[in-house]
Design a protein around this nucleic acid. Sequence first.
DNA 1: GATTGATCATGT
DNA 2: ACATGATCAATC
Length: 223
Amino acid sequence: MPVSSPANEEELLARAAVLAGESIAEVAQGLGLPVPADLSKHKGWVGMLIERALGASAGSRPEPDFEHLGVELKTLPVDRAGKPCESTFVCTISLGELCEMEWEDSRVRRKLSRVLWVPVQGERERELRLRRFGTPLIWSPDADELSALRFDWEELAGLVTRFGVDAITGHAGRFLQIRPKARDASVRRHGFAADGASIDALPRGFYLRPSFTFEILRRHFAL
DNA sequence: GATTGATCATGT
DNA sequence: ACATGATCAATC
């Protein structure tokens, strides 16, 4: 039985708050879903689980998870100290997009305008079914975060425009970075370079570094 | 131990 | 094909 869509942001947050303290096994059982032994072949499984538990609507469509609320849902795996143990995928790069586009219109900005972060225990030593959800947090970037993201985005967009997407490594960007996002390293996606030349490049996406998401948690929970 | 590049599954 | 959901694992 599918979970209904939350009517508003308050209800969404309240639903997520109910899950805090529950284990993955408990939440999965409530939905009648089997829990995989580990995530190695099911990397997005926890994210899908929480989507279903909260009544997310968008599925795999290029829309916010809660379309009518304009809210994006992200799980955030954290270690024992509450520090994120992974980067957070934001969105893919469409090759031509960065050249002429401005930050205000960017997909990074839109994706991150409103996010429901759901912390979940993510230590690899901990059995998947026993990992517990943490207290959720509705977030929008404040002025500092916005300017930091904008700075990185503009730097990265400039690098892509001047040197091409294949010249980018994960080293660039203080909080936002560009990394591969594909089935494997042989995948090529068609697009156009800044000079208009047709190119085929490894698909990449924007990711938030753990230092950025840790700061979000720190500020909110006063860790 | 932290980080970058590689990879896995599923839905439209 | 390409979007969604991310974590794995080799390397620094």
